[in-house]
């Protein structure tokens, strides 16, 4: 199914829940409202026309100029033999959820796609997006006592970690480019 048709179905089903659809991009996506995201996710997985059974990737974005954070979910429907109508679907679609930078809360979809569990932990670790109802929302890559969210655009690099200097004189004094 073409991304246009997916967008039409989504808008028909959820109306205001779909904020925007970007179809002329290299990889089309739809922007959805954060409070309706759980329902849309469930629909995307279970509906016979969608059958997005594989969550490929969750990308956290820092939109500093808009004072927002975003999570992009890349979905794919893999034909699994013997699981009904999805055998012919091979479609790819992306959903983007934008949240306020000051209170970045997104409902977790780890109950819908178990693969989301680690991806959401990574997004929390790297970007500080809080996924509500996540079974184990802790840091995954950085140590538990790490400060700050490294992939945010305004992240300050640490100068020291547990007594190990994190920078050298040279790096401090050399010109930034």
């Amino acid at each position: 199914m073409a991304p246009e048709e997916i967008c039409i179905i989504l808008t028909g089903e959820f109306g205001d829940g779909v904020v925007d659809t970007v179809l002329d991009a290299c990889r089309p996506y739809a922007v959805v409202r954060v409070d309706g995201w759980s329902d849309i996710a469930r629909f995307l997985r279970d509906d016979g026309r969608m059958r997005f059974n594989m969550l490929q990737c969750v990308t956290a974005l820092d939109l500093l100029e808009d004072n927002k954070l975003a999570a992009v979910y890349d979905l794919f429907s893999v034909p699994v033999v013997g699981v009904g109508p999805c055998a012919t679907l091979r479609q790819h679609f992306a959903i983007r959820v934008e949240v306020d930078r000051d209170a970045p809360h997104i409902p977790s979809v780890s109950g819908i796609w178990p693969a989301a569990e680690w991806h959401e932990r990574e997004a929390y670790d790297m970007m500080g997006i809080v996924f509500d109802d996540h079974p184990n929302l802790t840091r995954i890559l950085c140590p538990d006592d790490w400060e700050g969210y490294p992939l945010r655009k305004d992240y300050e690099f640490p100068l020291e970690y547990h007594g190990i200097p994190a920078t050298t004189e040279h790096q401090l004094n050399s010109p930034r480019h």
Binding site: C142, P150, Y155, P158, I164, P165, A166, T167, T168, Q171
Partner: peptide
């Protein structure tokens, strides 16, 4: 990883 590696020890001789 020296410049942008916020999580990389800059040489094992620091440890």
């Amino acid at each position: 990883y020296f410049k942008h590696g916020y999580h990389v020890v800059k040489g094992v001789d620091l440890v």
